[in-house]
Design a protein around this nucleic acid. Structure first.
Length: 570
RNA sequence: GCGCCCGUAGCUCAAAGGAAGAGCAAGAGCCUUCUAAGCUCUAGGCUGCAGGUUCGAGUCCUGCCGGGCGUACCA
């Protein structure tokens, strides 16, 4: 623990006759760094001691003295504390330097398994920018939990079963051709899908045709199965291409179709146990409670075909049996909140206590022109185009750079892609999950300010300094030489990284790390602008190199936790 | 109708009940020295409205207003 914070808690506790651990959680930071390094608001203490907070602040300002505390000042009901900076920096930078790439690593996940269901696209249509949300969030959560010591199982629960495949088969039978699908893969499948929906607006009988094909598919009809298999293979190949580019991996790629043979016996069992029942020709699990009434969970439609809820039940049971998870996260859009409420409730009904470990991690929709992107209506932005344009922009910035670039042509191309992709990922992860995102080209393609490239650029600048320094990182520099406000501010930011990682995990919110990194990068650039490193007097150079190195590895680790690349040069 | 989510600077968004902040856009500056994808300064606010709880509310509670999503045979 930070020795300064401990000393503040101990001394304040001793002065007021309270245990130090009661004071410790009250310690925060002042809003303005010029006020001090730490702050102690005295309201809670005032309430407990039945005294005025202003009076307590005054008393503590006089009493707080010690090897770590340089100055304590009362500011109304607050005590602002400035600590011994050399000791503070020794503690913070010493920790980062000692832990290196392991900085922020936690042990709370030791022995625990967490299954994360993310990406899980409906296949047979191109990867859209809307698909990216679950993919980016889940991939980041996966990395965050791994950093905290969890065993993470990443599951891609592909939407590879359901009436949309009946739709696709019907559309293909009417208008499709083998050559076109082979040439254009999912783009052709997508065109067929859209056309079918357009035509079915005029002719509702088409919908019945689609349902009938799905029914046949579930019954094992050879023609339907063969077409389905082919569509799945085409889709998987296309999707894998994007996962490779994005650097996204899964432990298990196992779609809904994998559970298609288990649904019948599950339904039988639930009927026998009286948990499910027939209703209006369908089979459902009623979910009426004394306090709240949920709509029933549909297991089998009146045409005899199953729905995704049935397969979700099977998947949850499968994952529990296979991995024994303590938690399973579903990184799925907020519009499915009710579905997951029902799913969890149904599993509880079935007598599975582990159902409480199922967590829906919802997120807002991606809008385009203030409208919901609808694949079937065709107003959709495909990831392929976004990647293309972001990479092009990145490339042109590299080409127009004033100084002659140190990069080879191949390196330039790699950096252009790494930066372009990261810009897209960061645009997604840099806002809290629950908001809807209105996709705007000018935002994704802005590489200044709060953006992925800005953070990467900061990292690359620091990497450049270290590269030119060329010597080993000093382990015991003269921390007392770091006295510039920009140096102090930067080092203090570094201290918060482990807390931010934990908070991101607790809240299932990579955004916490994204905004932290932006803040850290601002401090790093301010430091870079004010403080020269190379060529300074030897001991100062060493102290600053230590700060540069600690910042660099924190930025790098943070970027990695978001699923972004951290190029050494750009 | 009912349920869930959202409402903060012109725009996009932050702020674990504790001293309202960033970025973009607008305006003015800073490259013979470690990467200008950068830095500095200026300007911008009845935090949707009305109550309540609290020493203290953008944050919690209630009621309105506005928007989104959902509400058994899609996923």
């Amino acid at each position: 623990m930070n020795p300064a914070v401990r000393e503040i808690a101990e001394q304040a506790g001793a002065e007021l006759g309270l245990p130090a651990q009661d004071v410790f959680p009250l310690i925060t930071h002042p809003p303005d760094e010029t006020l001090g390094d730490y702050a102690l608001p005295c309201f809670a203490l005032a309430q407990r001691l039945k005294r005025s907070p202003v009076e307590i602040a005054k008393e503590l300002a006089n009493a707080l003295r010690g090897s770590q505390i340089a100055r304590a000042q009362a500011a109304g009901p607050y005590v602002n504390i400035t600590v011994n900076r050399a000791e503070l920096l020794r503690h913070i930078l010493g920790t980062v330097l000692a832990q290196g790439e392991d900085y922020g690593r936690g042990s709370e996940g030791r022995g625990k398994t967490i299954v994360i269901d993310y990406s899980s696209p409906n296949i047979a249509r191109p990867f859209s920018i809307a698909h990216l949300r679950s993919t980016a969030l889940g991939n980041s959560l996966r990395r965050i939990y791994e950093h905290l010591g969890y065993r993470v199982v990443g599951v891609n629960h592909l939407g590879d079963w359901g009436v949309q495949f009946g739709t696709l088969i019907a559309a293909y039978k009417r208008w499709g051709s083998k050559e076109k699908v082979q040439r254009d893969s999912i783009y052709e499948l997508f065109r067929l899908y859209v056309r079918f929906h357009e035509e079915s607006e005029r002719d509702p009988a088409l919908r019945e045709e689609a349902r009938a094909w799905f029914k046949r598919l579930e019954e094992g009809n050879p023609e339907a199965s063969q077409l389905w298999q082919w569509f799945v293979e085409e889709s998987l190949r296309a999707f894998q291409h994007y996962y490779d580019i994005l650097g996204v991996e899964f432990t298990e790629i196992r779609g809904e179709s994998a559970y298609r043979h288990e649904t019948a016996s599950l339904i039988d069992e639930l009927l026998k146990r009286g948990i499910a029942k027939e209703s209006e020709g369908a089979i459902v699990i009623p979910l009426v409670e004394d306090h709240q009434e949920l709509p029933p969970l549909m297991l089998r439609k009146n045409d005899g075909a199953t729905v995704y809820a049935t397969r979700d039940l099977c998947a949850a049971i499968y994952h529990r049996e296979r991995y024994g998870f303590t938690k399973k996260l579903y990184v799925v859009g907020a519009e499915q909140s009710l579905h997951f409420q029902q799913l969890i409730k149904a599993l509880e009904r079935m007598g599975y206590p582990w159902a409480r470990g199922l967590v829906h991690v919802p997120f807002g929709m991606v809008l385009f022109d203030d409208e919901k992107m609808a694949t079937r209506r065709g107003n959709v932005v495909f990831l392929e185009e976004v990647i293309k344009r972001a990479t092009e922009l990145s490339r042109s910035i590299i080409e127009n750079i004033k100084k002659t670039s140190e990069l080879t042509q191949a390196e330039k191309e790699q950096v252009a892609q790494d930066v372009g992709i990261s810009a897209i990922i960061y645009a997604d992860l840099s806002r809290s999950r629950t908001h809807n995102i209105n996709f705007r080209w000018e935002e994704v393609l802005n590489f200044h300010g709060q953006s992925g490239p800005y953070i990467q650029y900061t990292h690359a600048r620091l990497a450049g300094v270290l590269r030119k320094y060329g010597k080993n990182i000093p382990t015991e520099p003269e921390y007392s030489l770091l006295t510039q406000p920009q140096e102090i501010a930067l080092a203090r930011r570094l201290e918060h990284f482990p807390t931010k990682v934990q908070q991101a995990a607790e809240e299932y919110e990579p955004f916490v790390i994204a905004s932290y990194l932006a803040d850290l990068a601002v401090c790093a650039n301010q430091f870079y602008d004010t403080c020269r490193v190379l060529g300074e007097e030897l001991s100062l150079e060493e102290a600053r190199i230590a700060l540069v190195y600690a910042t660099k590895i924190t930025l790098k680790k943070g970027l990695e936790l978001l699923g972004m690349k951290a190029p050494e040069r750009m």
